[in-house]
Amino acid sequence: MSVLFDESLKSIELIFKYFGMYLDRTILNTAEHVIKFRSLHIINFLWLNTETIAEILWIIQGALHGRSLIKLTSIAPCINLCILANIKSLSLFLNDDKVKKLFKQLRNVENNINIGDEVVKKKIVAEGKKHLRAVIKALIIINAVTVMLFSVTPILFIGLEYKKSGQIKLVLPFRVYPFNPYDIKYWPFLYMHQIWSASLVSIQIAGTDGLFYTCCTSICTQFRLLQNDIETIIPERNFDENVFQEMLKKLAVRHDGIMQSIIQLESIYAKSTLFNFVSSTFLICLSGFNTTALGDIGYMVAFLSFLLMSLMQIFLLCLYGDMIMTSSMEVSNAVYNSKWYTVNAKAAKHLYVVQMRAQKLSKLTAYGYADVNLTSFTRILSSACSYFALLKTMERPTQA
């Protein structure tokens, strides 16, 4: 049987290499290794955060000089996403040892699958890989489209203005500098700086989320394989209690390994998930507000893609958390669906112990403040809609 985790990991490793992270490689604290494997990450980190600092300073300066609410909120989602990208990538960078430990745990669980029908196993694994490929493909496409729209929109505006008036009026994707950025001496560099900064944000969020989806898919697939093995642990005839005890012991070890993987995954992502939950409320609210409030059709389309990206990002995060909760609970149902009623009292008692243990819910949380599931997604949407209504109320007096 092909290994789901390793095959799926290959599809996102290239994303991480673009911003200078090597997930599955041991990096020593030597000058040679730091220069070879860390320098690109450090350069990209500094590159992105010069833009982030400029955006924050622009917001502060704008608030002090009485800029309109629409202008201020047009930059706020960008700041939010930049900070989110930083936190997500740093959560992996600072937990490098935990990431490698998680990889080892997931591989160990997969390598210990030595019972059950091979045809059924291959079918379950194939379904997991198919679903994951579709999600990562959609993730890459929507992030690429969003970056492209923000990159191309200024060029379109320059072209339309030249056609209309015969003059070249330089435009940038984001107006965030305290000096005049439209001087031809600075504009080309600043334009490329903003495009690559936007690309870094997209790559970092897509990469860290893609790894999260890969780990969750591997865990959910292992739960499904475990359920199948538990359901078929008791044969139709010729029940051998010694063989049964040995198989049950192996299944219990696998179950424990899967749950340990969930604990390890949460320890890596818990803090960034908490910020993701909080920031997504404002991202969805502000992106929706900018889509409806900005007068330029080009920027409206760009912020609409921004809104769709934000919705998709938090929805998938909650969806995969929900899938882990659901698949962990179904292990208990698998015990009930086995032929427990055909065995002796001692064997049935062992199955009952497994069932009781499986009823202890395995889940991911946002640093303990909220469960990562679809219920949390609806709460985020509800809060975003409330803040959106408040912003629209504040906008009307300003326009009046």
Rank of each mutant, 00 (worst) to 15 (best):
A144Q: 01
A126Y: 07
N111L: 11
L319G: 09
I168D: 01
N344L: 13
L23Q: 07
T281N: 00
G66K: 01
G368C: 11
W187Q: 13
L64F: 02
R107C: 03
L361W: 15
K36Q: 00
N333C: 06
S39D: 02
A31C: 07
V353N: 06
I168P: 05
A206L: 07
Y320F: 15
Q264A: 15
L81A: 10
Y341P: 00
A384Y: 14
E127W: 14
I158E: 00
K363N: 10
I12A: 09
Y299A: 02
A384K: 12
N80W: 01
S267N: 11
I53H: 05
R107M: 08
V331A: 09
R237I: 15
L361C: 09
V119D: 02
C318F: 05
S362P: 08
T326K: 05
D117F: 10
N333G: 06
E266M: 11
F93P: 03
E7F: 04
L211M: 08
I184E: 03
L139I: 12
Y191A: 02
S267Q: 04
F19E: 11
D296T: 13
L294Q: 15
T398D: 15
F275P: 07
A366R: 06
I380L: 00
F157Y: 13
S280R: 09
F303T: 04
R379P: 01
K271A: 03
Q264L: 11
K163W: 10
V34N: 08
V243Y: 04
F174K: 08
E330V: 03
L160I: 15
N86S: 09
A348V: 08
L160W: 15
A252M: 10
I140V: 11
N114Y: 13
Q359T: 06
I79S: 03
Y369A: 15
I219V: 08
L364T: 14
G368T: 06
P235L: 10
T146G: 00
L14N: 07
R175H: 13
L308P: 06
T291S: 14
L28S: 13
E161P: 06
L64Q: 05
V331G: 09
V135C: 13
T208R: 03
Y367E: 12
L265G: 01
K36H: 09
I168A: 02
S383H: 15
K17P: 06
I233G: 08
M1T: 15
K271D: 00
N333I: 02
G298L: 10
D117K: 12
I115E: 12
K363F: 13
Q61V: 00
S327Y: 14
S199D: 13
L251C: 04
L92N: 04
L265Y: 07
